[in-house]
Amino acid sequence: MSNALALPVNLSAGTFDAYLNAISQIPQLTSEQERELALRYRDMGDLEAARQLVLSNLRFVAHVARGYSGYGLPMADIMQEGNVGLMKAVKRFDPDMGVRLVSFAVHWIKAEIHEYVIKNWRIVKVATTKAQRKLFFNLRKSKPNLDWLSKNDAEAIAENLDVDISTVYEMEKRLDGRDMAFDLTNDDSAEDNNSAPVNYLEQQGADPALVLENADWKDHKEELLISAMAELDERSQDILTSRWLADEKATLHELAERYNVSAERIRQLEKNAMKKLKAAVVLEA
């Protein structure tokens, strides 16, 4: 659906004001007009009807997006994500539910904006679970009016959001933390150089000797496996290849029909073949 939608103005930094002015000129739909368009899209797949539903509600997206202006992210990008949420809402909207599109769409609009904010507000993600995301946005709204949370504040938030109080304190610390550049620039003082992560973070596995050794060891194990496979009888080779190496893996019953034996017999042959491979690799390694 999104490919068929042509917004009145490209939503970019240079044309942001023009975009806001353009969407404010788009007429709003009456409930009857909205229902008719929604039925046309749902029942007939009319993309022009979907386009009109989206365009007529872009000003609502702008209204919701303004509530996220305090995160230091480009408002044009936030609004664009909200537009994506609106398109998803139009795709799922059922006009027989008896509600207006904006009432249904607000969840989808906020969900897309929340996802964008969480991914881009910090280099290191501050929230990964659903509970942490809900807590993140609630604390962001209240923190400008608060210093460090008191015990009563933290307990009230934890009870209201149904999370553990330790989760509240952990999220508060993440919110008050600041991103640090991995390598300080020439403008940073010499005193700050010691605190730059580049000076104390260790990159595991970066030793060239270890990298080469690991690569050689992997190649060696592959050679052992190939040699051990060649020592198996043809039926065992075919069973292992069909069960583990083929693009479309065969089932036990399919192999049982191929060799005119029971599925249990195929399972036993597979198990024995795997034991032989493992023993050969371990013994030679």
Rank of each mutant, 00 (worst) to 15 (best):
A127V: 12
A111D: 11
Q33L: 01
G70Q: 09
K276T: 14
K130W: 07
I109T: 04
S150L: 11
H253M: 10
P208F: 12
L37Q: 03
L245N: 08
P197N: 01
V168K: 03
I113F: 02
N194G: 02
L283G: 06
E115S: 14
A13P: 00
R140W: 14
G14Q: 07
F137T: 02
N199P: 00
K130N: 08
A38K: 05
L146I: 04
R174F: 14
L20C: 14
T15I: 02
L39G: 00
V64K: 05
W108C: 00
Q268P: 00
W121F: 11
D238T: 14
V281S: 01
R92G: 00
E222W: 11
S103M: 14
V282H: 07
A62Y: 15
L135R: 06
N120R: 11
L161T: 13
M1Y: 02
R140F: 10
F93Q: 00
T185D: 02
I123F: 13
L283E: 15
G82F: 06
F104P: 00
S242F: 10
S2H: 02
S142Q: 15
V163P: 03
R100Q: 15
R42D: 01
L210V: 14
R235P: 00
E172Y: 12
V99S: 03
I26R: 05
L212V: 11
N186L: 08
A273I: 08
R40V: 00
A13N: 03
K110G: 03
L232K: 06
M75G: 03
K88V: 04
